[in-house]
Design a protein around this nucleic acid. Structure first.
Lengths: 145, 145
DNA sequence: GTATGTGCAAAGAGTTTGCAGGGTA
DNA sequence: TACCCTGCAAACTCTTTGCACATAC
């Protein structure tokens, strides 16, 4: 993973470049996302922020995440169990998601670039983003069966 | 695409195998999904069903789609602009989605099987499904720019 | 100092559920 | 005939919005 401090500075720099202000509350959200290894949900981020700033509202968390989405400093992983976020790697990358415990990990896969080019060539679309998620059962949940 | 009549019969057979009943309303939903080339939204399906059965409720459309999801006879495409459905090809396959007009098309891509195996091998997950969606601008919307 | 972010509550969108009545197998 | 499906309305979840106040720059 990228060093969370480096990611945090990148996020701050990007937000400031867009003239968004950094506040203690939004900074707390940034810190959590910059260090996220576990793709937290909005609710989870909210709980962690409240541990530091108990008066923080859920709306503020949503607003901050939306700013980050706008400047492409966070990646939203859309899953039916509730969306999750990755602020450490804010660019498209594959996920492997456990259908039982909802654990998400990031494998390094080769060949996505080629696949994207193939899709662009065959459809004529100018492709800017992608989403590649695998679903299944993680080793821990397999062991429990 | 698969012949809509063939798909319709497959859907009916699968639902009956699970002891679900076929009604005029649910049949109307099945017919639309079996012939879907354009990945309709729930709202769109609802409108088309109402054209035939004006008293149909949105809840019935949702319930029927959920049955089909349960027996894996429809594929849900999760997009932020509102989820869309494919009843003609109810198995995982790639989509190319236009960010402007929301048009969705299905390219034939090679290499997804290999990528799935690579992901399974590197993570230890037993992978059963995947979701591969590309986002960009379609040729029509590019021409308008 | 001024525009922007915060916190609260209410509104909004999308989806699900409970129940009474009607229709399928 | 018995049970399931429908249609309606209410509930529910997730997310956004409006407004008064606080605060970063």
């Amino acid at each position: 993973m990228t060093d969370p401090r480096v990611r945090l500075n990148q996020m701050i720099a990007k937000l400031q470049a867009y003239n968004f202000r950094i506040t203690p509350q939004s900074l707390a959200v940034l810190k959590i996302l910059a260090a996220s290894l576990d793709h937290p949900s909005v609710e989870r981020i909210y709980e962690q922020v409240k541990a530091v700033f108990p008066t923080t509202s859920l709306a503020t968390v949503y607003k901050t995440i939306n700013l980050l989405k706008e400047v492409k400093e966070v990646l939203e992983v859309r899953v039916s169990a509730g969306n999750r976020f990755d602020g450490n790697r804010p660019f498209p990358h594959p996920h492997v998601i456990c259908l039982k415990c909802k654990k998400i990990i990031d494998p390094d896969l080769s060949g996505i670039q080629e696949l994207t080019e193939e899709a662009a060539q065959k459809t004529g679309y100018r492709i800017t983003e992608h989403c590649l998620d695998f679903f299944g059962i993680c080793p821990d949940c397999q062991a429990e069966e």
